[in-house]
Write a protein that binds this DNA or RNA. Structure first.
Lengths: 157, 157
DNA sequence: GTAATTCCTGACTAATTTAGTCAGGAATTA
DNA sequence: TAATTCCTGACTAAATTAGTCAGGAATTAC
């Protein structure tokens, strides 16, 4: 479990999509503009999120990305996991030069810690942010501010 | 709050020191050998841990590093914080180009998440690993395996 | 007081990851 | 048919991580 700006980008982008679920698919161009991330970089990230089965793309005008499953079934851990490559925790991998076969003690301790962290982040779902009334209010304001979804009549329906 | 291999190195190294508190200071050379990290890189990390007030160095033969305060007062969050530079969470920093003065919504959400994570890692202290009897047993075994503390009579006293 | 040990400092380099750029193609809608 | 948007892959630039090197400073053991 690694946690970098890359993971943050992915999580915030996914939050953006989750917050607009009802309006329709969200374009990467919108996310790019609102969050100040380059479009091409977002495309790289979303290629991974797609492979991870977290989002699905909709092509053509009015298209964009939507969640591949309900927001209460997507955790922060899911997102980070699909975007960040696993780092081998042990440094000795399968070599066993760490402690003659056994996993080195401190590596074992880190592993425990890492599991706890993973469990913690697995418990945090996108849904719990979406359903907060104070947030829905802000979403509306910001959408107007950025002029999002203005030329998308079918999205409202 | 970022979490990389760098942070992992620091945490595992600190665990190593905590586990050997009673025996005396732990040399970076030992940690380097046991965990497969280069000595010079460890020195860079420990320069930060020292500045963070988490460890203090003891020079000369029989020297090494020891914890600067009790193990129940050093959390995983402390360690990672002093080793990893802060990353600006907002990307707009103080520029306010994010959402005209207000913090962008999704950035705000990430900030909340990050706080929770920080609180979680602050709750995990080095002590809770040190005091586990199953671990003390393993520490002894591995120390013999690596031939640690063999030429250090004063360390036992 | 000399030698060995260990921390400590700073500058430099190599490898990896992150982030961005570019050029183009494929599916969909109007 | 044209506009929109995802989608792919190759390439480059910047940042971070990790390692290397050379030397100095404090301490201990002899």
């Amino acid at each position: 479990m690694r946690l970098s700006t890359k993971g943050r980008y992915a999580v915030t982008a996914m939050m953006d999509i989750a917050l607009h679920q009802k309006v329709g698919p969200v374009t990467l161009a919108d996310i790019s503009q609102c969050q100040g991330i380059s479009l091409s970089y977002l495309e790289q990230l979303f290629a991974k999120l797609r492979k991870g089965g977290l989002v699905e793309g909709v092509r053509g005008p009015g298209g964009g990305y939507r969640l591949a499953r309900p927001a209460d079934q997507i955790s922060v851990a899911d997102i980070i996991e699909s975007v960040d490559e696993k780092l081998d925790m042990t440094k000795c991998g399968g070599k066993g030069n760490c402690s003659q076969g056994e996993k080195c003690l401190t590596h074992q301790l880190w592993f425990e810690l890492s599991c706890n962290l993973y469990r913690f982040l697995s418990g945090i779902k996108l849904e719990q942010y979406v359903n907060r009334p104070d947030i829905s209010e802000l979403v509306k304001k910001q959408d107007i501010q950025y002029g999002r979804f203005i030329n998308r009549p079918q999205a409202i329906a």
